[in-house]
Design a binder for these strands. Structure first.
Lengths: 68, 68
DNA sequence: ACTTAATGTAAAACAAACTTTACTTAAAGT
DNA sequence: ACTTTAAGTAAAGTTTGTTTTACATTAAGT
C-alpha cells in the first residue's frame, strides 16, 4: 500500500509527533507508516484522513502487490 | 467503527463466503467484521471498497467511541 | 422429514499492529 | 561548539487481527 502521509503532513506543517498525538498513537507508529510496508488499521487510517480533511483514498492507495 | 457491509453485500447478492474469497480472507473474518467491534486492516478495507465499487467511507465510518 | 446453503459463534494458534524505551543522525538556531 | 527539534531506526513486549477447525442454527427446496 502506498501513502502520501508525508506530503499531507507538510501541507499542514505537522510533525510526526503532532500527528501521532492527534490520532492517539506513538510517533514511531507514524514513522513506520510513512516508511510504507505497514498495514495500519482502518480506524487509524480514517482518523488520519479526518485530521487532514480529505478522503482516505487520497492518502492510502492499494498497489498490485496488495492483491497477494 | 460502524459498517454497512451487510447492505453492500445484499446489493451485489454476495454471500459472506463470496466476499471472503474475493478479498482473500476467511469467511469468519468477514462475519466478524459485519458483527462490528472489529478493527480490520486498511488494505482489507480498501479491497472491500474496491469490490463494491464505492469509497471506503461509504462502507466504514468512525464512531465517537473510536476516538478513545 | 431430509438436505443443502448461508450464517453465527467459539477456542486455540499464529501473524501482524502498535507501544515503549532508547540510541542515532541531520538540520537549524544561538 | 553547543543545544534543540524532527526524523530514522531497532529490539522486546503487549495487544489485536486473522486463520483454522469445528459445531449449531435458520431458511429454503425437494
Amino acid at each position: 500500500m502506498k501513502n502520501s502521509l508525508k506530503v499531507e503532513r507538510a501541507k499542514k506543517d505537522f510533525t510526526q509527533a503532532d500527528l501521532a498525538e492527534r490520532v492517539g498513537v506513538s510517533r514511531q507508529t507514524i514513522n513506520a507508516i510513512e516508511k510504507g510496508s505497514y498495514n495500519l488499521s482502518t480506524i487509524l487510517a480514517l482518523k488520519i484522513a479526518k485530521i487532514f480533511e480529505t478522503e482516505l483514498e487520497n492518502i492510502f492507495q492499494l498497489e498490485e502487490t496488495d492483491w497477494k
